[in-house]
């Protein structure tokens, strides 16, 4: 009698439990027992004590409430952030921190995108970089020292490898150092090779700036410079986190570069060991090919040239 169940609460509870456990088993328990849920990229490494301490702070401050860490395999998303996320990148993420809301940009490919100094300055004052940013300032993390014993116990809980030097190296570091160290390791197991394949370096089509000396281009270039370049290269190209653009030293050697070299560096960014005109780069400059169109890049170059003449 099917109707009896509505008179027997214990039976009803048991049947309900079985009914909810069917979907649970098929979509959650059984997949968990298969290798497809435990992939690991070959060059993925467990977090170091400093990086884990940074990740703990990322969790504590609830960064995942505003920042995701998954790039979806959609064209514009790959253009904006970089190579789409792979299952094998997250084998050491306890828990995953993919998030569900992008009030701020995705961070899945933030690692090594900017130099450390960029992050220190940005955490301290996000509005110095983006005047209308709504991100809280995190300068207060500076000077809050880490507790090496605590971090050691966290490493042990996760069975991540570390050396005694790793732990003793933590004293003297503060929470900001740890958070920046974590930023720089996010998503780097994949980017190095795959991103450069996905986005081949583009050569400039013209050897010289077609917009050189054009007043309108200089004005547009100034505007673009303030929005994209000033946070690193300083006001009027005087240099800050990034090198000066008006001191006649380029890629660590005296002497100017040609227009097309400028174009290629802005368009493609730099990576460690990259060679441009016989000079070796140390990396740290992001690519602006997705943010700026060709004529916009040339306009920025016109603006930089106008600064150099002053």
């Amino acid at each position: 009698m099917a109707g009896a169940i509505y008179r027997k609460p214990i039976l009803f509870a048991i049947v309900s439990a079985i009914v909810i456990l069917i979907g649970t088993a098929v979509t959650m328990f059984i997949p968990m027992l298969t290798p497809q849920m435990h992939p690991k990229l070959e060059n993925l490494k467990p977090f170091t004590p400093l990086q884990l301490a940074g990740r703990d702070i990322y969790q504590r401050e609830g960064c995942n409430n505003c920042h995701t860490q998954t790039v979806r395999p959609l064209k514009t998303e790959v253009m904006r952030y970089g190579e789409y996320s792979k299952a094998g990148e997250f084998a050491y993420d306890h828990p995953f921190l993919w998030g569900s809301k992008r009030t701020g940009p995705d961070l899945a490919r933030i690692g090594k995108k900017y130099p450390d100094m960029w992050h220190y300055k940005h955490f301290e004052d996000p509005r110095a970089f983006f005047a209308e940013s709504n991100m809280p300032s995190y300068g207060w993390l500076k000077g809050r020292s880490l507790d090496p014993e605590d971090i050691k116990s966290h490493m042990d809980a996760l069975s991540f490898p570390y050396t005694a030097d790793d732990i003793s190296g933590l004293s003297g570091k503060d929470e900001m150092d740890a958070l920046v160290a974590y930023m720089q390791v996010i998503g780097i197991a994949v980017t190095k090779t795959a991103a450069s394949e996905a986005k081949p370096r583009v050569k400039a089509e013209e050897p010289e700036n077609p917009l050189a000396g054009d007043q309108k281009a200089i004005e547009l270039g100034e505007e673009l410079y303030e929005g994209n370049c000033e946070m690193c290269h300083g006001e009027h190209g005087k240099g800050d986190i990034g090198p000066s653009l008006v001191d006649n030293i380029f890629l660590y050697e005296e002497g100017d570069l040609a227009d097309d070299d400028y174009f290629e560096i802005i368009n493609n960014g730099t990576s460690e060991g990259m060679v441009e005109e016989g000079r070796t780069a140390k990396g740290g400059m992001p690519s602006f090919s997705d943010q700026m169109q060709k004529n916009e890049i040339w306009s920025v170059i016109s603006y930089i040239r106008s600064l150099q003449k002053k």
């Binding site: 979509t27 997949p31 968990m32 849920m37 435990h38 997250f90 306890h94 828990p95 995953f96």
Partner: peptide, 8 residues
Amino acid sequence: FAGVNSAN
């Protein structure tokens, strides 16, 4: 649980 499994 870790990564994709943690997410699931």
